[in-house]
Design a protein around this nucleic acid. Structure first.
Lengths: 347, 347
DNA sequence: GTGAAAGCGCTAACAA
DNA sequence: TTGTTAGCGCTTTCAC
């Protein structure tokens, strides 16, 4: 391992000078010519900073903590983590990921803190309303796909309303006249927002909202029966599905009745498990959640907060949802926008 | 932040004594009575070690690097990461996760190294044959769900043969007589091993291996047609499916022909996307890959190597595959065992 | 048994 | 413009 000391000796300057140069704090303090020589030898010797050593003095480790309660267990997580990591690496940070599944949440967070984590991401899945662990309250923190009931922390979330709205509009555009929503019984913002969007779209386009076309189910046996009943009772010709599994129920029911998706009926589903668009079916429109973008943007926000500087030149990714044209190649994808909430607590 | 210095002052001893006690190196060197007092004040003051500071002298950070090429992007990853993290935290380590998707693999690894990572996990998905990045070759390293062509590194993998063998046996036990395999065209150990297991089971049980019952497909449109053709051509009454998506094709084909899974035909699928057993279908047997266990065990191996001590008292998780009885409640699950390969390189 | 002292690699006052 | 010095929190000789 090459140290500043070695560079100092080789260049014939002091360690402090090297330090100044390596930290780009040499403007007007070190003669440009000397600085250049230092940089040259540093490069030649393959010098890399030792962040642990600097952290001892600066109390900055350039380590971010990614704490998630369920996210790392579920298929949804990948994108968030990847986006967060890409952004982190862009700003010169690394991420330590811990998933705290109930058990010893505080112990895991404490472990992270020991390493002098500069700030935290706290992620949940499907935009639940979330109690932030007490041990995180006084740290730089951004919530991801999660909502803080009191709005005390900044958060990054999918625009759930737009998901429902865009999905339903697409079905309307495709000529569907009886559009069903297969939702979720568990209480969460995702469900509320998507249902509201679905409803708004129907009311706006004149079709009107009909509660008998909505069925909320869980991921289990009775779900298939409920969807089946809806099929026979209401004979919908369009389906907006809360996620992959629920789309699957629709497929099963359709196949069993000799109906073909894409001809007899249309389906738009949210691609939670990433199994819909990638593997199964070219006859379906999927809504892509902005997982990668949320992770990326959350880190941008967090780092800006930590370093107390504006996000100059960094744009929030995919700010608007893009609706594919009706004749788009299958499987068509609707990209969902993300929403950023400011914290209302007084810093 | 509480430091050793503060504890030393409060207890009326020197920092070195505190250091000895906190590192459990006080046996016979520090008077038990003094040691007890040190421990007491340490606890009272809420002391926690600063790993960064110690690493400066010891060159041990207790940080593990988790490098994955695709794994963090896919739904399969969660379990591996969670298992690895649990084991890490058990041994007092934390994990920094990076996913290197093609691009700047070496840059990401270099970033990890800067932090003085003690060792690495290198994970891929679906047991591909893998070239290990050069920058990892000289580090403590364990491969996860990946195979090194030259066996130069220890690895932890699912027992692919057993997956195919157990799945097929279960179908035989259930009374199936024409058992199909819906495999994968991409070359990987998972495919080879599972097919071999399928074949062995059929030959052993007397049914015999019939190549016309095997169809290898990709996750896309033609796959459904291929499975459909198999349905009509060979009329199988049992299906072993490489993964969720492929099971889905079988469901679609069955539904369209008025056949019911669990009555007219039986399906055993590998639950890659974790969407099969959890969401869709109680009429199916799923094979669970030992993701969590692989992550856990890989870290056990890695830490043992790093600290150069035996894995005393730590058992490899789920060493044998468990076959659920025929009348097991649905959805039944087959747990797959994992395999450990030693490295053949001379350390 | 215990403590003083040196030093890990780096940063930040302050002097020169 | 540069070097000297002190010290971040900890470990590790080595002397007492």
């Amino acid at each position: 391992m090459v140290t500043m000391k070695q560079i100092a000796q080789r260049t014939g300057v002091s360690v402090s000078t090297v330090s100044l140069v390596m930290n780009h704090r040499d403007e007007g303090r070190v003669k440009p010519e000397v600085a250049a020589r230092v940089r040259a030898t540093a490069k030649a010797m393959g010098y890399v900073v030792n962040p642990m050593a600097s952290s001892l003095r600066t109390n900055r480790t350039h380590i971010l903590g990614f704490v998630s309660e369920e996210v790392a267990t579920t298929p949804y997580a990948g994108g968030i983590i990847r986006g967060a990591q890409d952004a982190a690496s862009r700003f010169g940070y690394v991420m330590i990921t811990v998933s705290v599944d109930g058990q010893d949440e505080d112990a895991e967070i404490a472990a992270l803190k020991r390493y002098g984590t500069d700030g935290f991401l706290y992620a949940k899945m499907s935009n639940c309303i979330t109690r932030v662990p007490a041990s995180l309250e006084r740290e730089p923190l951004v919530l991801v796909d999660a909502t803080d009931p009191d709005n005390r922390f900044p958060s990054v979330e999918p625009n759930e309303f737009r998901i429902g709205y865009d999905a339903t509009c697409r079905l309307v555009d495709a000529g569907c006249e009886r559009i069903a929503y297969i939702g979720c019984t568990e209480p969460m913002l995702a469900q509320d927002g998507r249902l509201a969007g679905y409803r708004a779209a129907l009311e706006e386009t004149g079709a009107g909202y009909d509660p008998s076309l909505v069925v909320d189910v869980l991921d289990n046996g009775p779900a298939l029966r409920a969807v089946s009943a809806l099929f026979d009772r209401a004979r919908p010709d369009g389906f907006f599905c809360f996620n992959d599994a629920r789309a699957w129920y629709v497929y099963e029911c359709a196949a069993r009745r000799g109906l073909t998706v894409g001809r007899d009926l249309s389906v738009v589903g949210v691609d939670n498990h990433r199994v819909l668009a990638e593997t199964l079916d070219p006859r379906l429109t999927t809504v892509e959640l902005p997982h990668y973008e949320m992770g990326y943007w959350a880190v941008c926000r967090l780092v800006a907060g930590i370093e107390d500087r504006p996000l100059d030149g960094i744009d929030m990714p995919r700010t608007t949802a893009a609706m594919p044209p009706l004749d788009a190649p299958s499987p068509a994808r609707i990209h969902c926008a993300l929403i950023e909430k400011e914290s209302v607590r007084t810093a």
